[in-house]
Design a protein around this nucleic acid. Structure first.
Lengths: 374, 374
DNA sequence: ATGAAAGCGCTAACAC
DNA sequence: GTGTTAGCGCTTTCAT
């Protein structure tokens, strides 16, 4: 029932190879024939079968997008941007969810390898060496992680974490908690490193709390621990943890930011909508998705057709660009001055010091990319 | 470089068809040969090329998922559930975003048709007749819309809207606003119909406000209009509109629920996290995604192999099941008793009537499905 | 500029 | 139980 190239050939009275050329190399076919063929194709509703085409060209015009957790609000904007960018370039996108499981990640790369021209690995939890190994099977672009020799798109969460900690020390906080994210997260390590350094130079002590699942529930579960720990401010691995923590603290009767300040990372849409509005580090997720697709398809264009060995990680690292996208601290209402001594407990409701607002850039301007390696 | 069936055949000293059988009809091959072939395949890292296989079997083992807006938090849980269910059944999922544009929807169905075994059409904005027509090209399951003769998965938003309006009239509200959703939305029509009926029997007047883009911004933009309209309660097309409205009202100094009650629909994760927490109609999005995949693959299993004409909408409507999933009103803090006369404006902050809570089921129990047609 | 023929990786009759 | 053959829909030499 589906109409094939043969149907079009028959209808327009030419050989199938002419029809083929009409679509894949129009300049090689007589203009008159071309319009006739095109007309017949249009008529019959012919669409080339991409899978069949891929069999011989080695180009599927599909890409894979492997995501830790689609339901985590950090990812949808990235998925949306990546899909949009891919489609503009005439690519379709497989999306798969790993549930934060490294084994599933690996399995998915294998499973998708044959039907895609490349895979975007989003916040992978597997080891770097495994990623390198997989990149021998199918072109990879890694998002939110740095892997030597592979194209990567990162967000400068280190810079963001530093800015966040400096913001807190500037407000007088000297005991700061760091609500860690999941194991295996590159982002988590970067945050820890940068926050630690910033705390040291700011004369503050950093208390590590984690690892935690990067969810609202994970944040809520740490509320009691945070209260006991004696910190007056917390930087969380992501906004969900931060929001969960604020919820949990609220339940315990601890006020944010009067008693404890909380900073998130990501600036998901949700952050503007909670009370208090969340101070957070905005990460350019849309730009990351778009750039990753561009890098993948660029790489794909450069690569000679099929039958040729893939580049190895240690081998010819042509234009293995690594892109570091800027982040930006967005100060809202969940951070304020450190309480004078200890934490006041029984102030009249609503009479405490109002939230301290240095500035609220609102929607941060589009982050600019910076190539850190090539 | 990629390892093919031929490599495995050579390595294990059998013909390629034996290798093929080892994978697609293991019972037809001698156990000893089988283990040998399997071992070689494992060794070489062989994976059958699904696209090549599809060329002859007519089964791609892919499905398409067409979504109005991935970044709308209503959809990710549905995508996640659908992808998970599909993968459990060994299917991969193309995800595409239409930006709420009916033309893009159509184009995507065409584009995907050849590389999938079926398409899930999520909250489509195009006309029913076009959907029927497209279903002749590729098997379709429609989510959030009823199309005669086609498999559909719906959520009973009509029932939900009725429950919401009854909740409001029960609280004494007599002037209720309905914040409409986008044009072309089946859900929107259902809500309007049911809310209208419920308002009538509850002795309330329903004021329509819309259509609106189903976003926070859309809700905020209507705040002033809502305030002028004189309503004491609003039912919104979805939670985003409701939350945006609450935000907007807050900016205008109108308190929710003391002056105006607001009810959303969907119960997205966000609804628990705003202040006040949103009263809303929970829709079983995960169940919808799973069921839709099941219906599609069921249909796919029933259908004879390729080369055979697709079923037409008006033709043999075998087991064209339509599934209506239950919804549930979740009462939280954004609804309260209607203000005594007009709307009080200058009450002492925090001294107004507390939020009225009939019950808070918390996480609604899994919705049960009900077949309304077959 | 177009046709003929080979073949991408795989499955499905059909022999043996 | 296994090999042979044909062919899915398409592109790509190679002739003409």
């Amino acid at each position: 029932m589906p109409v094939t190239i043969r149907d079009v050939a028959r209808a327009s009275g030419v050989h199938i190879s002419t029809v083929s050329r009409t679509f894949s190399a129009p300049h090689l076919v007589n203009p008159e024939t071309r319009v006739r063929v095109l007309a017949c194709a249009e008529d019959l509703g012919y669409r080339p079968n991409r899978a069949a085409r891929a069999l011989i060209t080695g180009r599927t015009h599909n890409i894979g997008l492997i995501i830790a957790d689609i339901a985590n609000p950090f990812f949808p904007p990235l998925i949306k941007a990546a899909e949009s960018q891919a489609r503009h370039r005439d690519y379709h996108v497989f999306v798969a969810d790993t549930n934060e499981d490294p084994t599933t990640e690996e399995e998915l790369v294998h499973a998708l390898a044959k039907q895609v021209d490349g895979v975007l690995l989003c916040s992978p939890r597997m080891s770097n060496s495994l990623i390198e190994q997989l990149s021998r099977e199918v072109p990879l672009v890694v998002i939110n992680r740095q892997v030597a020799g592979l194209p990567c798109v990162m967000m400068d969460v280190g810079q963001g974490a530093r800015a966040a900690v400096e913001h807190l020390t500037g407000l007088g906080h000297r005991a700061i908690g760091l609500l860690g994210g999941p194991r295996g997260s590159w982002t988590n390590r970067e945050i820890r490193r940068a926050a630690g350094a910033a705390a040291r130079s700011g004369g503050a002590e950093l208390t590590l709390l984690g690892p935690n699942p990067p969810t609202v529930a994970g944040g809520g579960a740490q509320a009691d621990q945070v209260r006991r720990s004696g910190v007056t401010a917390v930087l969380a691995y992501n906004d969900l943890l931060a929001i969960g923590l604020i919820e949990g603290l609220d339940t315990l009767g601890v006020r944010v930011p009067q008693e404890i300040s909380v900073v998130g990372i990501d600036d998901i849409a949700l952050s503007r909508l909670t009370r208090p509005k969340l101070t957070t580090v905005a990460t350019p997720t849309g730009a990351a998705g778009r750039s990753a697709v561009d890098m993948l398809l660029q790489q794909d264009t450069d690569t000679p057709r099929r039958g040729v060995a893939r580049s190895t990680a240690s081998g010819d690292r042509r234009t293995t660009a690594q892109l570091m996208l800027q982040t930006e601290l967005v100060i809202r209402d969940s951070t304020g001055p450190a309480p004078a001594a200890g934490r006041p407990r029984a102030e009249a409701a609503g009479a405490g010091p109002g939230p301290h607002r240095l500035a609220d850039p609102g929607c941060p301007s589009a982050a600019t990319g910076e190539v850190v390696a090539s």
